[in-house]
């Protein structure tokens, strides 16, 4: 997208990671740019920031982890919840490389923010 997000809300914080494109599932691959994927950094459980890139509690892959309540998300599979109390995956932010620059291709897919009740 051409617009630059100028809102300082923490709901606009995103996670970026470059992965082997062959590791991405069919849903994730079209949203990735040369293996780079982006997700909302706001945990879907209690709205804490997802801050860690760490070995999964169950399995050997590195995953995103929220250190507040230990929810883990696998960015290779659309940030699916693989551990912890989070009720749903992180919202995905599709990316594309345009003129050699990494840009956002579309708005968030999925709800940004924690659960309300």
């Amino acid at each position: 997208m051409d617009a630059i997000v100028r809102d300082g809300s923490r709901l606009n914080e995103v996670l970026l990671v470059r992965l082997d494109p062959n590791e991405l599932d069919e849903t994730t691959r079209p949203r990735a740019a040369e293996g780079i994927v982006a997700y909302s950094a706001i945990c879907s459980h209690a709205g804490c920031p997802v801050t860690a890139w760490i070995k999964a509690s169950e399995g050997n892959d590195d995953v995103f982890k929220c250190m507040c309540h230990n929810s883990e998300y696998d960015p290779r599979r659309g940030a699916q919840v693989v551990f912890g109390p989070a009720p749903r995956r992180l919202a995905a932010l599709p990316l594309v490389i345009k003129d050699g620059v990494l840009v956002i291709a579309a708005p968030f897919i999925g709800k940004v923010g924690g659960q309300q009740g």
């Binding site: 923490r10 706001i42 709205g47 804490c48 920031p49």
Partner: peptide, 14 residues
């Protein structure tokens, strides 16, 4: 009564 909490709330201790 249900409190409507802000969308951007960071609840370390919910």
């Amino acid at each position: 009564y249900k409190r409507e909490l802000p969308e951007d709330l960071f609840q370390l201790h919910p």
